[in-house]
Write a protein that binds this DNA or RNA. Sequence first.
RNA 1: CGGGGAGUGGCGCAGCUUGGUAGCGCAUCUGGUUUGGGACCAGAGGGUCGCAGGUUCAAAUCCUGUCUCCCCGACCA
Length: 444
Amino acid sequence: MRLSKFFLPTTKETPADAAIASHQLMLRAGMIRQESAGIYSWLPLGFRVLKKVEQIVREEQDRAGAIEMLMPTIQPADLWRESGRYDAYGDEMLRIQDRHKREMLYGPTNEEMITSIFRNFCRSYKELPKLLYHIQWKFRDERRPRFGVMRGREFLMKDAYSFDISEAEAMKSYNRMFVAYLNTFARMGLKAFPMKAETGPIGGDLSHEFIILAENGESEVFCHRDLLDLPPPGLDVDFDGDLQGIVDERTRLYAATEDVHDEAAFAAIPDDKKVSARGIEVGQVFYFGTQYSEPMKARVSHPTQGEVAVHMGSYGIGVSRIVGGLIEAFNDEAGIIWPRSVAPFDVGILNMRAGDEQTDAACEAIYNDLIAAGLEPLYDDTDARAGGKFSKMDLIGLPDQIIVGPRGLKDGIVEVKDRATGERVDLSPIAAVAEIVRRHGTKY
RNA sequence: CGGGGAGUGGCGCAGCUUGGUAGCGCAUCUGGUUUGGGACCAGAGGGUCGCAGGUUCAAAUCCUGUCUCCCCGACCA
């Protein structure tokens, strides 16, 4: 993409309404625009990151054996009366009427709808297990939206739902999602830790929140330091095999959010292993048994026990929230620092003297070579001043930059700068492209 | 929902106490000089001062109502 053709409304000054780094930087980098409290337009740069995050989530859901589908944002109120949640959900649910005065709502989640779909088509244990997911916009009318996309009212979420014949089988589905989540967040460069969590309005018996540590996190978390050093399971894990060992390894040591914090258990941890920090919830997994299948009559025939209600679980990942969470985790004075897997573009090319024949030619060659290598470069081909180009590129946080100017070109070199470390190396244009390709490893 | 704060060119702000027909920085446009870390000079365009009502010869400014947004708390898969 050529910057001169792109839409990237960045600002030098920090907008007054943003309080934390991620919100400020998303506004300054031209990623989002607020439309109303907790409701945002995703401008091209932000949209590209959102899509990258979404795609990683999708790939890991698929790898774990979940099946993608899509349910609507608007749901009929009657469905929610079946589970009793229409009245229980309160003002956080946005209730609306259609032209025929029918009661509808903008879905805050989809347990009722997926249960209704399941019961309509599945009648036998032979259809189980099933693990379905979708990635869709949701709306919760928060009393007080804040922190930009991290606590918005409208948000993009992946939610998966599992259907099993028994609690024991449901645990296998739970474990699938649990392990998939570890890999999902690791691929984004995030260290997310499963912690025991409250089950909340969804209800149920067993739940873990996946938390990334961040100074501006909205909840306080406590855990054993050894948990922080466990590597992700890896993409070659066998999801049809026994995952209990992986889950046990992550849940054996103490880890809890403030809501379910157990002072006594925490006190038992050696002092040098105690971790007390703030965190951002990026995902949550629940097992809630027959809480919805029972009242909504989602039953299947059992080989020996007649008809039984299915055991269910639900598994959410806050896709749009993660974009904010990533910036909280990866930023410095100059701006954002994207991990390579989620960066809106792979590399920036800075033309230090647009209009200079030799410089233009060198930039064009590098730009075309990078595209040919399968990468997505953002080429700053504008005639803006050098300082502005540096600042803008640092602000939007592309992981690598290639700086091309007459000064270097007279010696046959360009500069390759690593945004995260600030490290610069002088290379020939050909070698620079090779170096960028090397850094992006698997993308090539 | 309780407490606090703010709405003035695209962005950040001043002006309001003590009414007199709107200003600064950034951004934008034109011309020129510049050209490797957000340049300089000269000029230009752009605002029903959130909205409604009231007081007054006159309202960004005073009064009443209302809407919106932000912060702290409570709340929150």
